[in-house]
Design a protein around this nucleic acid. Structure first.
Lengths: 240, 240
DNA sequence: TAGTGGTCTAGACCACGCA
DNA sequence: GCGTGGTCTAGACCACTAG
């Protein structure tokens, strides 16, 4: 047998099994051969087959169980990786000039509403910001943000005049967990800066961020509904 | 050293490195030790370290390059796994009774608009459906769907009286690629079944599905904005 | 050219969970 | 029990690429 070195063996095994699943030859519930059987089929070590199957399981195409073996899972059509791009990158990718202005900036002891927004156990000093993002000087997105000064004390000295809070925070809080909430709202007086007719439907994206279990920030981004949409793709062969 | 068999070694190695990244001890750009160094540190085989690092790379926490080694990546805060649950499961999980009714069902040659919705190269026969999903007999979601009869000819004989098109399709087209688009719209006459005041903001989720490069279906789901939101979580340690 | 990750082997022992 | 996947080893050769 001629070994094709261009594509690793474990990938070829994975692809072969994936093809059988995607084509419907192995419908959901089908029990796939054991690692030992596949190793014999492809004349390779069990570890190599294991890598292929572990990969497929990570991508949700199969489910692995001891003793009973691996079976093809039912598809979860409704799951998708959502990429909410960085505002500046998003605007510039669309070929527009990005601009940003800060509207308000206040430091206060967290109110009860602030505690709920940040999911704080007890009040701490917070920085409340609101900003406007523009594409070609056209209002594009309204941002309403709360930053916990307990988690990010250095925010107290940041002016956010030249850099948006989001971009600044990425540099200060390297990695974190986040929760997103996407909903639809109606434009009202609080969104006057977006220059929309009252009642215009808007997309609202809320993001809560933690660093090591500590609440960091809560942001609410409002986009005019006709000017923005979120797009997500899901392809089994490309998921990873 | 006492081996803790409860947690596999490669997971413990992964967790140790992840902790250094998440804590900020290893900020983005930091070059992490080579596989050989880590294998010596943890007194194990290089393969074990390799599994830990491959894992971290798959989750996007590090980037691996030959010769130059592995480095901590910049975080992508705005990426999240979005789970758009099955409508029936979603309603029942919330403790309501799920009900479904079909409003219209028509077979026609694809119009130009249909071709655009399904991204068809040339017109084929299609099945156009509209349905209402109810939670505790309260209108919950309006569905507007197009199914390509070229891809799913057996849809011609399905009545969709007892089973919603989405549930039926999952059984007929086992696995597929999908594209989602989420936006905000205003309630209008076409959504009369949702019994909303005109202008009520609604969340619109569009999903296009392919099976082996062939367009299968396009669906538009409309939810009242105040009654529904999409939630996604992103936690580096849990991402898979 | 030499350092680094990518892949692969041919074994091994163990834990889980059906029978 | 005992079959299956989960993990791990101690090597090996190769491919890529930065210096």
């Amino acid at each position: 047998m001629v070994t094709q070195r261009a594509i690793p063996l474990h990938r070829r095994i994975r692809a072969a099994i994936e093809a059988k699943i995607l084509s419907g030859e192995w419908p959901p519930g089908t029990r796939i051969p054991t690692e030992a059987e596949l190793a014999a089929t492809y004349d390779c070590a069990r570890m190599t087959v294991n890598k292929a199957l572990t990969d497929l399981a990570a991508d949700g195409l199969i489910e692995r169980r001891r003793k009973s073996g691996s079976v093809v899972k039912r598809p979860v059509l409704q799951s998708a990786v959502l990429d909410i791009h960085d505002l500046k990158a998003e605007v510039e990718a669309a070929g527009f000039t990005y601009r940003y202005t800060i509207a308000t900036r206040k430091i206060r002891q967290a109110t009860r509403a602030d505690c709920e927004r940040l999911q704080l156990a007890k009040p701490v000093p917070v920085l409340a910001l609101s900003c406007l993002h523009l594409a070609d000087d056209r209002p594009f997105c309204w941002e309403d943000r709360l930053i916990s000064l307990a988690a990010v004390p250095q925010a107290q000295d940041a002016t956010f005049i030249h850099q948006s809070p989001g971009a600044w925070l990425i540099g200060e809080v390297p990695w974190s967990a986040a929760e997103h909430r996407i909903s639809a709202v109606s434009a009202d007086a609080s969104l006057a800066a977006l220059e929309l007719a009252p009642g215009t439907p808007c997309l609202a994206i809320e993001r809560r961020t933690w660093d090591a279990e500590q609440p960091v920030t809560h942001v609410r981004l409002i986009y005019p509904g006709d000017a923005h949409a979120l797009v997500a793709r899901f392809a089994p062969s490309k998921a990873g």
